[in-house]
Amino acid sequence: MTEYKLVVVGAGGVGKSALTIQLIQNHFVDEYDPTIEDSYRKQVVIDGETCLLDILDTAGQEEYSAMRDQYMRTGEGFLCVFAINNTKSFEDIHHYREQIKRVKDSEDVPMVLVGNKCDLPSRTVDTKQAQDLARSYGIPFIETSAKTRQGVDDAFYTLVREIRKHKEKMSKDGKKKKKKSKTKCVIM
């Protein structure tokens, strides 16, 4: 069974824990209790493949930012979460993405942009803004509501699919490099 290491990042209060708990335990946590770091595991079937999701729910508070490099190193894919009623959390996505790329030393890291709290009427981040940002990053965008469960499975499952595509691409690139290195030079 394939294991996928997913990391949920975003500013404090955007609903990272609520999304994760909704996926794992099928219930909505409405009281806000700032996370330092929590880890969850769940076995699911995605596109006919049974897999184990190892999900790291991270601290959004700035005082825990020193811990970010460590979990970013171990993560295979990242859910970059903002709240649709919090423009600052949307603007912060850029910083999370840049930090992930720096730590992973790669421009090509599996990510999904997630606009959470889409059940709320007080939207300050337009869907088109988020779609445009995701398009500019070359990553999928999904709106979710941890409260109603809308888009929750889709967000995590899409990230797994992005990781699969990335692994497939990397193995193809690896095979191309191996083929090239088999060419021999004969000096007579």
Rank of each mutant, 00 (worst) to 15 (best):
V152M: 10
G13P: 15
G75S: 04
K182C: 04
Y64H: 07
I36C: 00
S65K: 02
Y157M: 07
C185G: 14
E76L: 05
E37W: 00
G12H: 10
L19C: 12
Q25A: 06
C185R: 15
D154Q: 09
D119W: 02
E62L: 15
N86P: 01
V109D: 03
V44F: 03
K88H: 09
T35V: 00
L120F: 13
N86A: 07
M111V: 10
G77S: 07
R41H: 03
D154Y: 08
V44M: 03
A155Q: 04
R97F: 15
D119T: 08
Q22K: 06
L52M: 06
T35W: 00
G13M: 11
D38G: 00
E62N: 14
Q70R: 00
I21V: 10
S106N: 10
C80L: 14
G12T: 04
A134Y: 09
V8C: 07
L159E: 14
M111I: 09
K169G: 09
Q25K: 12
Q99F: 11
G15L: 06
T183H: 03
S65I: 13
R123Y: 09
R97M: 15
D132W: 10
M188L: 07
G10H: 06
N26I: 03
L113M: 10
Y96F: 10
S65N: 12
S122Y: 09
K176L: 13
D30I: 06
A18V: 11
A130T: 09
E62A: 04
K42R: 12
K167E: 09
I142C: 14
Y64P: 05
I21C: 07
K172L: 07
M111D: 04
F90W: 14
P140S: 15
N116C: 15
V45I: 05
S171E: 13
T50C: 14
E62P: 08
V109K: 01
C118R: 10
K177S: 13
R123M: 13
N26Y: 15
I84H: 14
H166K: 08
I21N: 08
V14S: 11
G12P: 02
Y64I: 14
E76R: 03
E107P: 04
I55R: 00
D126F: 09
E49C: 05
G115Y: 10
E162S: 10
L120K: 12
T127H: 09
Q129F: 10
L159Y: 03
I55A: 06
D47M: 04
K117Y: 15
K16F: 04
D33M: 15
I46A: 03
R41Q: 04
M67C: 03
F156M: 10
V186Y: 06
L56K: 00
L133S: 09
I21E: 05
F156Q: 12
M111T: 04
A83N: 14
E76C: 11
M72E: 02
C51F: 06
K88S: 09
G60V: 07
T158S: 08
Y64R: 00
A130K: 09
I139W: 06
F28C: 01
L19F: 07
R73E: 10
V7T: 04
D126V: 08
Y64L: 15
F90C: 11
S65G: 10
V14G: 09
Q150S: 15
G151A: 11
D54E: 09
Y96P: 03
M111P: 03
D132N: 09
V7N: 08
E107L: 11
R68V: 14
N86C: 12
A59S: 13
M188E: 15
E98L: 03
Y64N: 15
E49T: 05
K42C: 11
L53P: 03
G115W: 06
I46H: 04
S136M: 14
P110R: 03
K16Y: 03
D108V: 08
L19S: 13
K117C: 14
E49P: 06
D33F: 14
G10F: 03
T127P: 09
M72W: 05
L6R: 01
R149F: 03
G75I: 14
A155N: 01
G75P: 12
K88G: 10
C118W: 10
E63I: 08
T124R: 10
F78Q: 01
A130Y: 13
N26H: 15
M188W: 06
T50D: 01
Y40V: 02
L79G: 01
Y40Q: 02
L133V: 11
C185Y: 06
T183A: 11
Q22P: 00
L19P: 01
D54S: 01
L79E: 03
D69Y: 02
D47N: 05
L52A: 04
I21Y: 10
L53Y: 13
K117N: 14
K42E: 02
G115P: 04
D38L: 00
D153A: 08
I46S: 04
L52H: 08
V45W: 03
R102I: 08
R41F: 03
D132F: 10
S65E: 11
F156D: 10
E31Y: 06
K169M: 12
K16W: 02
V112N: 01
V14C: 12
K101Y: 07
T2Q: 15
H95V: 06
Y71N: 09
G15C: 15
K128H: 09
L56T: 01
H95G: 11
K169A: 06
H27W: 15
E98C: 09
Y4M: 11
Q129R: 11
V45L: 05
V45F: 01
Y40G: 02
L133I: 10
I21M: 09
V160D: 03
K177L: 11
L79R: 04
C80E: 01
V14W: 02
I139G: 05
M67W: 15
Q70D: 01
H166P: 07
G10A: 11
V186G: 13
F82I: 06
V112Q: 02
K101N: 06
K104Y: 14
P110E: 01
E98Y: 08
Q61L: 14
D105V: 04
V160N: 08
R123L: 09
P121C: 11
D38N: 03
Q129A: 13
P110Q: 01
I142N: 06
I100W: 03
E143D: 09
L79H: 01
L120T: 12
I84K: 12
M72A: 15
P121M: 12
A134C: 10
D92V: 04
A11V: 06
P121Q: 11
